[in-house]
């Protein structure tokens, strides 16, 4: 464990807490893409298949349970909760995310570290996470104004993978064997997809204006 990875995990946790706060405090999920939440639930379920077979540390196991539990709880809330589901922007959240799932799975069948079920699902989860934010970014552009908590959620979600890139650089120089280029490339793509959001987020913060993404 290094400071970059710890910062990344905590930033990721903060993004989830901000999202839970927004949904719980406002009893609304307006501006949140259910499709992105479903993709993230799939990412964690596919990535943590080793939850009960490979024990890394208490921290690792607890965080995996938190990520799986919170992502499923958010999807449940947005689909089933009587009050919250009424504020879901169904007509704006139209990204065909099934193509992202299919594409990531096909890529994982072709490009993986080892041809085992666990490694193929791991690679699938890495590729899917890289593009999982797309429905959310599209929804933000369509819904025009972005409320503060939603903006902060997306910001922290993007920032966490940037910390992971620093973690991979650190591990590359400190551990001879560390060459996880599947994570490297997907992590760079994932962070790059946030580039324009980060730009408009920073500009809105600098000008102390509401976050507006160009349609």
């Amino acid at each position: 464990m290094n400071i970059f990875r710890l910062a990344g995990d905590l930033t990721h946790l903060i993004s989830i807490l901000v999202l839970l706060l927004k949904i719980y405090a406002t009893k609304s999920c307006s501006g949140i893409s259910l499709k992105t939440q479903e993709l993230y639930a799939l990412v964690f379920l596919a990535r943590y298949l080793d939850l009960f077979t490979d024990f890394v540390s208490v921290y690792n196991t607890v965080m995996k349970l938190v990520f799986i539990g919170s992502s499923l709880a958010i999807v449940w809330c947005m689909r089933m909760h009587r009050i919250v589901k009424r504020s879901y922007n169904r007509e704006l959240d139209t990204f065909r995310h099934y193509f992202l799932v299919a594409g990531s799975f096909v890529l994982a069948l072709v490009v993986h570290e080892k041809f085992t079920l666990q490694e193929i699902f791991w690679a699938f989860s890495i590729y899917l996470e890289a593009v999982a934010i797309l429905p959310q970014l599209v929804l933000l552009q369509r819904s025009g104004n972005v409320d503060n908590l939603t903006g902060q959620y997306v910001f922290f979600l993007g920032a966490y993978r940037a910390f992971y890139i620093l973690n991979w650089i650190y591990r590359y120089f400190t551990e001879q064997r560390f060459g996880r280029w599947i994570s490297w490339i997907s992590g760079l793509v994932q962070t790059a997809l946030y580039a324009d959001f980060f730009y408009y987020y920073f500009m809105s913060w600098k000008n102390n204006a509401k976050l507006q993404l160009p349609a």
């Binding site: 080793d50 890394v56 690792n60 995996k64 791991w122 992971y164 064997r177």
Partner: peptide, 10 residues
């Protein structure tokens, strides 16, 4: 299992 196959990151 050897470090190689084990994904120790979240």
């Amino acid at each position: 299992s050897p470090e190689g196959s084990l994904h120790d990151e979240l």
